[in-house]
Structures are given as C-alpha cells and as structure tokens.
Design a protein around this nucleic acid. Structure first.
Lengths: 365, 365
DNA sequence: AGGGGTTATTAAAATGTTAAAATATGCTGT
DNA sequence: ACAGCATATTTTAACATTTTAATAACCCCT
C-alpha cells in the first residue's frame, strides 16, 4: 500500500538495462579484470546515469565484512574523548568504514550490553576504552568478542587479553617531565593531586621518579586523593570539586607546598579556585601544573601549564592499528605508548623565598 | 584455508538440532503466536545452549530495516555535543538501535561525503546538526536523503525542507530572561558578545527584546562580533580568544558597560581573563553572564552565571522524534523548542554606583 | 573443419533471514 | 467417514549481492 520507502535500483536492473548478466555488473563494481573494457564502460555509464549504489547490507551478507567498527568509550563528556572519537571517525571515513558509537557512561551493565549488541551486529572490529576498574570489567565479555573473531584495540585501559592491541599515552614520563620542570624551578615540596582512574597511578610513579632522580624524599602526606569515606563512592573522573577539596586539605599542611602537580586540568581548575579564595597568587605563591590541556586551560586567569595528550592523533592511530589487525589477524599484539608534551604557560614560577606564607587574607568571594 | 573468522551457527543449524524447519525457528525468534508452546520451548532451549544470535545483516536485507541511525554533528569538540550524543546513544540503545557517528568538523565536503555514505548504508533515519552557514549547506544532499525515504531530525540548525523535524533550544527567551535578570539588578548599559553561529542571532533578539521591554534604547556599539577583516575567516564557534578580544574592545568604550551578556561560556571565560588583567572585579565592577553551562563554569575564580541547555534531554528527545517519524512517516513535521534555564551563580551583582571606573591598575600578569 | 587454449559472459548456488503459500494435523459435527 | 475448519508446521520464494562453475566466443594452428 503505502510503501513509503522508494524502491531503489538494484544490480539486476542495471544488468537488464546494460543487456548483460548481473554477475558481470558485479565484476564491474569490484574492478575485476575479467571484463572487457567496452562492456565495463557501458555498465559504468548506466550506473552513473541511474545513480545506483550497491546495497552494502547484501554485500555484507555475502562477504561477511560489514565495513563497520564499534567504538565504546567510558564517557563522552570526559574532555579527551571527543577528540579521540573525531580522530577515529575521520580516519575511518577515509577507509570507507563507519563507526558505531557506544558510551558505557562508566556503567558496567551498559558496557556489557553494548558489547553484546556490537558483536551481534557483526562489526569488523572494535576500539574500546574499558571501564577503569580492576575488580569487574566485563573481562569475559571482551574475551567473547575475541572468540567471535572480532579484533579489539584497547584504548587507555589495558585488559589482560593477549590478542588485544593497546594504545595509550605514556603517563609516567609525561608526569616525570612536568615534575622535573617544577624541580628545576627550585621546588622541592610538591603536592600531587590524584585522579580516580588508574592511569593516575602511572602519573604518580612519574612524580616519584622525578623526585628520586633529584634526591628529594617522597612524602606520602603530599599526595591527595578522593576521600571515599567522607564523600561516598563517586565514579566520575577527578573533577573541579576534587581539586577544590584537595587544595583545601593541602593548605592545612605546614609548611604549605610550593607547587601542585594535578592529574588533570579539571582538578587544577578546582585548585585555582580555592587558591583564589584564600588569596594565594599563582605562580608567585604557588605553582600549578595540570594534565590534558583542555580548551579552557589557556584562558584561566592565569594560563595553566599542563601536559598535552595528542588526542586526535591517538584516535587516528587506534583506527590504523585496528585496520592492520583486520587485514592481518594473526600478527602479534602491539602495545603503543604515545608521547605527551609539556606546554609551558604562566602557572609555574620559581619557588618563593620566604619560609612561610600567609593564608586567609583572600580576595573577596 | 585460514578462514579465521569463526563460523557462527545459523538458523538452519538451530532448526536441524531442534528437528524443525527454519521457518519455525524464525517464528520463535519473532515471537509469532503461530507456534506451539512445546516447540517454542524446545527451540528456545537450543538457541540458548548454543548461544545463537540471529544475523542482523541478513535480517536487514530481508526487512529493509537496519536498526541503525546516522548522526552527523558539526564538531564533537563543541561542548554541548558530547552530551547530546550521549542522550541519543543511550535512548537508541534502549530501542536496540545503533548509532553511526559522523563529524563534519564544519567542513562542507566532509558533510556531503558523510551524508552520502550514510544513505548508501541504508540507515533507517538521520539526526543531523547541519553546518551553520546560510550560503551553502549541502541542502541538495539533505533533500536527496529525504527523497530516498530516510527521515531526518534536524538539530540546532534549521534547513528549509518541509519533511524534516526540528529540535533546538529556544534561544530568544533564554537570552531574554538572562538579560532581564541583569536589568533587574539595575544594569542599563549591557554589552552583548556575539557568537559566530546563527543561533546567536536569536540570542541577540532576546537581548533586544529584554531591553525594549524595559525601555532601554538599543545601542549597536555595545554589540561585539568577530572582526573578519582583522582576523580573517575562522569557522570555529566563538571561543576564549573572541571573548578576550571583544572585552578588550569593549573596555575602550566610555562609559564602560556595567554588564556583559555572552553568547557562550568560552567567550565569557575569555572576557574573564581580560577583566582580570585589567583589574576589574566580577561582579563588583562588572557583571557577566554566559551561555551553555559547561562543566568548568561553576569553578572559575568567580562562578559564572549562565544559561543551561538541557543537552542530554535534547539528545534523548531528538531520538524519540526520529522514532516517531520512522513509525509514522507521513505525519506532519514537528518543530520543538526546548526551554533553557538561567543558573544564577556569582558573576552578577547590582550595578555599581560610581559613574566611571578606573582601568589599568590590574593584577599583575 | 576440428581441436586446444584463452578470455568474456552467463547461469546457478550461496549468504541468513522473513513472509507468503502450501501442506499436514487434529478436531467437530453431520 | 468425511467435509469444514482451526491450528501447527514446512516449503518455497524473495531480499541484493558475490563467487563458482559452466558455457560461449574468439583466435590460432594444424
């Protein structure tokens, strides 16, 4: 009756119009050399005339390749993901792949559900940023994806599955360079503001390594992390509130540290706020370094020195990694660590001379 | 030879194992009432045992419905998109739809290419945020999508295609309320910082309407927009740099306005920075309002009063709109304007008393 | 004219599913 | 016992493509 959907021309119709069998048309479509130049041209002309595009679902049925990949991320609103997604999508489009996006929102059930949905859709491959939680990370689900013959590239968080490729920023040396920069400026009492996700551990390791290299003893009381007892469990990545709270706690220390290494920019911005409230100037009284180089970090009232991850590039590379594996499924799994870069702005300065600083005369808020 | 990919069980195999024809299995799968309870159970048991999932590509071939929608946005890194995408994806997953994501990156050729790719993939519907440019917006491409019988829900930017649904935040009253709030605080000389995208015009209209309602004459010299001659054409959405530049220009006015209405938060943060440089206090010397309520806006050194768009909700609604249309293709196109909300924080205060303010003694930078 | 050997084309089978048509089964009332 | 009917199941065709095997066309050579 109301067959709304326009009937599209199919290969049969093209064949008929060109006076040739549909096998031949198929050959033309697939650039087979087994077709005479003259017929090829004739067929091509008709195809163009009529605006025919081969039906990818029929194609997929026959070829078992859907030219579709899955992408599952922990949370779209974490600032590094959008660019990663962009990198993946852009590169995928170049290769005529489509990407199905899934956002687990840090929810294990959603992650499992999305995973199953993707495999049932017969994706050709998967790029996945698993939920960052050593306890329960749907490991079996991921394994079953591999068992179905679908290759996986792991992003940001490693899972112990030997067949998976892995790509991530190399957090340890990145943090190390940042902290070293602070040390060179004369700082010796440097606080570390922890994030909740496990990569932050590597950043802490980098922090420790930098200290060690300069013979500065590690002082555990300078490391701040979310207080689960007080706040209850929050699953979100470290945010402005964390930075604010850490900073508040830190300022009770005596002497107050002269610099802060933050595990991300949101934490840094929270620290900024507390520092402003209490009248501490950046960088004269205290230096701050962030991580991620989010868009606004250059436009805070004191532009933030921070570690920049090449997010777009990472996205691009992860797709390329996946392509390689789709083409060559049995090669050995790769692990790629991407170099980050310290971008120096205004939030770090030489250590102050005086021993003690005055707190509390803060700007009015 | 190396048929890497594991051969999955198909409906035929299930049928065979259950000692029944595959038509029957198909019926079981589709919850047809025309199958006896006993056989249904037997079949279901086998299906579960063997972990069979029906092949969606074969299904799609037969049914002409792929359970896949396309989503094309202008740029992933604009702060409102991630949440919109999240809303769409989440709602789609509930209905067993997958979302193919495309990012035009504000590039017309990419937009056209993605559009064609999506239709050739036989998506069931499209949610699109077209590139914001009245000159050339691939209108014909969008039309041809409709002609192929694929319904479109337009997001944020309207295209003159009568068959398309449309959803967007209602910018004019949102801005109006914000400006009215400033007026109530006693401000009469209020600057407007324009964004480059056309919805900003509606925000300007709201600004004007609020003025009119309170008998404040509109002064064009208080409206700031990107200076194409000086800067050349930049296609990106209004950013921190714009806010910084606008503010610099504004501060040359005499008398200096007592409040700024910004068309987005990034612009506001740029203004913040210039104000800090020049020693102007917020809100004592000058009030600022933003638009978007991005995550950091609550954690600037003065928390920003801003207009909050219900982005997740918008995403959810746009998917629902699309679903309705897929089910009922010939209903009249809908246009939905979503209410935004003013979130009051600390960046606005009563107008200052003195006539002239002193500029230039700013905090050191 | 009749092989032998390429090369180009066609016909047919296969991919995994659904839906329509055909058939089988069982029951009721005569 | 059988028509008439409802219910359950199977067969078959269709969906749009690719691929394999079969065939036709062509050329060259004796």
């Amino acid at each position: 009756m109301e067959s709304q959907r326009l009937k599209r021309p199919n290969i049969k119709k093209i064949a008929e119009m060109a006076g040739v069998s549909y096998g031949t048309v198929s050959r033309v479509l697939n650039n087979s050399p087994l077709v005479k130049e003259k017929t090829r041209k004739r067929v091509l002309k008709i195809i163009k005339e009529i605006g025919y595009t081969p039906n990818p679902v029929a194609r997929a049925l026959k070829n078992k390749s859907t030219y579709t990949i899955g992408l599952i991320i922990t949370n779209m609103i974490y600032p590094f993901f959008p660019q990663i997604v962009q990198g993946i999508e852009d590169r995928a489009a170049q290769e005529n792949y489509s990407v199905i996006i899934c956002d687990s929102q840090g929810d294990k059930e959603k992650e499992a559900q999305r995973l199953m949905s993707l495999v049932s859709r017969r994706i050709d491959g998967l790029i996945a940023a698993p939920i960052d939680d050593p306890e329960n990370n749907n490991l079996e689900c991921y394994r079953s994806v591999i068992k179905r013959g679908i290759p996986i590239v792991l992003l940001n968080y490693y899972l112990p599955i030997p067949e998976c490729d892995f790509i991530c920023v190399d957090d340890k040396p990145a943090a190390e360079i940042a902290v070293e920069y602070l040390i060179e400026l004369g700082h010796r009492r440097i606080a570390f503001f922890h994030d909740v996700f496990s990569r932050s551990n590597n950043r802490l390791l980098g922090y420790q390594e930098a200290l060690r290299r300069h013979n500065i003893p590690f002082d555990e009381s300078l490391v701040f992390a979310r207080d689960v007892k007080k706040e209850g469990i929050r699953l979100s990545i470290g945010d402005e509130l964390d930075g604010y709270n850490f900073c508040e706690r830190m300022l009770k220390l005596s002497p107050v540290p002269t610099a802060i290494m933050c595990s991300n920019d949101a934490i840094a911005i929270g620290a900024y706020r507390r520092l402003a409230e209490v009248g501490l100037r950046i960088p004269e009284d205290i230096s701050v370094i962030g991580f991620d180089n989010v868009s606004y970090s250059n436009y805070l009232y004191v532009p933030l020195t921070t570690v920049s991850q090449p997010t777009y590039e990472i996205g691009k590379m992860s797709f390329e990694l996946l392509m390689e594996r789709i083409k060559e499924p049995k090669q050995k799994a790769k692990r790629i660590l991407v170099q980050a870069e310290l971008v120096k702005r205004r939030s770090c300065g030489p250590v102050r001379e005086e021993e003690v600083i005055e707190i509390g005369k803060g700007i009015e808020v």
